[in-house]
Design a protein around this nucleic acid. Sequence first.
DNA 1: GTAGATTTGTCCGTATGTATA
DNA 2: ATATACATACGGACAAATCTA
Lengths: 245, 245
Amino acid sequence: MEKPKPLWQAICDTLRAEIARGHWRTGSRLPTEAELAQRFDVNRHTVRRAMAALAEAGLVQSRRGAGVFVRAPARLPYHIGKRTRFHQNLLTSGRAPSRRILHAAIARATEAEAEALALPPAAPVHTVEGVSLADVQPISLFRSVFCATRFPQLGAALAAGQSVTAALKALGVRDYTRKSTRISGHIADVLQARHLDIAPGDMLLLSEAINVDTDGHPLEFGQTHFVAARVDLVLDGADFGPVVA
Amino acid sequence: MEKPKPLWQAICDTLRAEIARGHWRTGSRLPTEAELAQRFDVNRHTVRRAMAALAEAGLVQSRRGAGVFVRAPARLPYHIGKRTRFHQNLLTSGRAPSRRILHAAIARATEAEAEALALPPAAPVHTVEGVSLADVQPISLFRSVFCATRFPQLGAALAAGQSVTAALKALGVRDYTRKSTRISGHIADVLQARHLDIAPGDMLLLSEAINVDTDGHPLEFGQTHFVAARVDLVLDGADFGPVVA
DNA sequence: GTAGATTTGTCCGTATGTATA
DNA sequence: ATATACATACGGACAAATCTA
């Protein structure tokens, strides 16, 4: 971060994260502006600036003389289209993206993975698993698989914490696009719940995606379990091609 | 039906429906080919032909000497793209589409509906609610909203059980495309569970879509609650426009 | 561990209806 | 009309893998 974030924006992010985390329920009243000012040790006007941003985003609604009320359990709109990039996606929503790598290794492709990447069965593949976060809140668990024969050096770049886009770029992949996406609903097991800071049994949205290079060859097969309570998957019309066929 | 369906295909459909309905659990063994041949009163080879189709679809897996095993709880791939049509969608998956209208009326648009259709607040709208079925199995609950001022006659056509596409066609709408889709995860309440033949608390995938005419004007705002255990939402690459930008 | 029964996989063949050239 | 090709459906025999007693 080169530019320091304005104070009101930091407060806004903090409150948004707390609302998203369910710290305050939908419909409940937030602490008064005076109380929040004291908590963050800022002037009441700075709190008001943060509140204005939250109200603009439709997250809260203020009623004069009554207080500020939580409107909806803040769901992050995650855009899926021809070019779906995690970092860019969150930045346009004004959230801070980050990833925590849990595991990276070379393994034999499972049946599904080999088919998705158009590889022979049990071909060697890089596998990367981790947690995606927005403003320090877990958003999703991902598992990405790449052909190890084609990208021998990929493991190091990914384990070093680089984004997928950056790691691929370093290996000469200038661009990649999404070929297909499949979305299904599932239930979090104990392990997933631990990593995502939710309760076992909570809802997950599983997005299974195949990314291809400019030649149409499969590059990456990614499985991402989103916390359903925290994200909406949005398919933009612009990404569906021209409206008039 | 003009052309009679081949025997093996009918058997395939029957078994698929039974698997989808949960008649046989995931991982369990199906009756032997000999038993099925006796049940359907056909030759064993005909059963094998049906099995081959199920295996092709990834629904079952056979192990020589052991039997045929259910691979996955048959999820219907529901394709979402520029032109998403319920009937066509199911037909390409070899399932029989049908709808049951629960309620159709003219009402005032809610805030969200008015915004989606670009109408003034509380404008009059047709609302249609119902259940979508595949092979007599409930797939989703839908609620569609149309501008009542633009389509005064739409209510009758829809209540008569016509498809959305057919009803709009009768009113001069030659084509419509999907502008945007938002997918989120929810939990079924008691009422939804009753209509969808599931248990309260089961997972639902909510798809909120805006369809526009060829001029880009919003036509329909549709909210569809899919039974997560019965459908996958599939976004095809071809519908995202050309791969090479 | 072995033998035998069970079950799927593969090969042979025959007959029939349908679409195509 | 005729010939050809193809998908459907049936019947049988045996091999290979698996399960069970």
